[in-house]
Design a protein around this nucleic acid. Structure first.
Lengths: 226, 226
DNA sequence: ACGCCTCTTCACGATCGCTTCATCCCACCG
DNA sequence: CGGTGGGATGAAGCGATCGTGAAGAGGCGT
């Protein structure tokens, strides 16, 4: 899950970025509204966290612009504590939720999770493909009852695949969601991680779940072909 | 449904009590923390609404005392709007939810309803993970019968871990609950305390309970891998 | 005021996993 | 059936992260 944090104050930006990274998100940051709007493929983020008070172009304007461009990415707005108007304006401008500064990180995390959950209508924290299951909160992964332990990147990759089952995901798309922007797409990092994932989850099983679509990308599916 | 409202300001107390009564709740009120604690059979309420700012004994203290006495009644805490520390402290001291003043009555009502629906099994007195047990009231910790003595921070850390077994907890999240809000997240205090906890708890045992999830955080679990 | 205990800080070494690279394998093309 | 290009694989480098010992800072009771 990729998140864009738009925040001018470095301390807060760091605090948020680090916390999110620890919780398995790929994070990019922008220091002002203009930078946010010029961010390449801004639409590819899964969530955008937007401070209202920004130099140059303020958060509400950024939000409006994004919505006008057709971006549907969930936006979480950070507002000053006593500016009720901002909250209203924020929601009116197309934000999905707001959080009043200063806030506890656990609160931010809870709201980000809620916003992520929105897309896949699936309730609960567990993703399932065949006999493979992955709990997004406890980070527990098991296949056919046997638990599997994964590294951070492996988990992020598998989670992304499992959020889009039966769907062919190109390397570019995967890179965009599992890695952050300064990703060097000439390497075969993804291939290597896929290989390691396979060893851990498809390893000894007859019935493979991760499939290669030559020249296109990867697909996770309980069905064999398709 | 019986509700205890603890609030010193008469206007707010009246507003809340009256509104709740109109919605079919039986309401009692206390004007300060001391009165609240001396209320006969305080445990018999279905919900307690507690202002943080109270004369004599403040809300957080009341909350802690109640929990220490083994009261499981859901507590909704009313906090001032800009006091993040209060929110965090409130939740840590055993409150189930909080509401920032000023609030809309409809919101209060919604939260009270949510708390009534909740099963009160949440705050048992002893937490258990494998052969490790921790009593939140007596503050007694033992592993496999042998008692272990911990320092205050170690206890707080272990309690927090044990309240979320099998779950990976990031340092940011741990810091927020075990330390207070102005925590410097560049140090490795958490690591050090984890190390000391391990020495006391996992030390000589073959079967380790505290696991490191590299790049993510820590997890306590009776199962080996997670 | 003193000493003890706990919490915190710091520096350093060990470890782990992400990434890179070279090489091998295989599917699909003509 | 052989060539080609994309994918798989194993190993190794390196940087980030974690564990650890020791020492400083601060609080508490005696």
């Amino acid at each position: 899950m990729r998140i864009l944090v738009v925040e001018d104050e470095p301390r807060i930006a760091d605090f948020v970025a680090r916390g999110l990274a620890e919780n398995g998100y790929s994070v990019d940051t922008a220091r002002d509204g203009e930078e946010a709007l010029h961010w390449p493929s801004v639409a590819e983020f899964d969530v955008i966290i937007l401070d209202v008070m920004l130099p140059r172009v303020d958060g509400i304007e950024v939000c409006q612009t994004l919505r006008r461009q057709g971006t549907r990415t969930p936006i979480l707005m950070l507002t000053a504590r006593d500016a009720v108007e901002d909250r209203v304006k924020g929601l009116d401008s197309g934000a999905d939720d707001y959080l009043v500064k200063p806030f506890a990180f656990a609160e931010l995390l809870a709201r980000v999770r809620a916003l992520c959950r929105r897309e896949p209508a699936l309730l609960g924290t567990t993703l399932t493909v065949g006999d493979l299951s992955l709990d997004t909160i406890t980070r527990h992964v098991s296949r056919g009852g046997a638990s599997v332990d994964l590294t951070a990147k492996e988990f992020a990759l598998l989670e992304y695949l499992m959020r889009h089952p039966d769907q062919v995901l190109s390397r570019t798309v995967i890179a965009e969601h599992v890695w952050n922007y300064d990703f060097d797409n000439v390497t075969n990092v993804i291939d290597v991680h896929v290989k390691n994932l396979r060893r851990k989850i498809d390893g000894e099983y007859e019935h493979k779940l991760i499939h290669t679509m030559r020249g296109i990308g990867y697909r996770i599916s309980a069905r064999g072909a398709g």
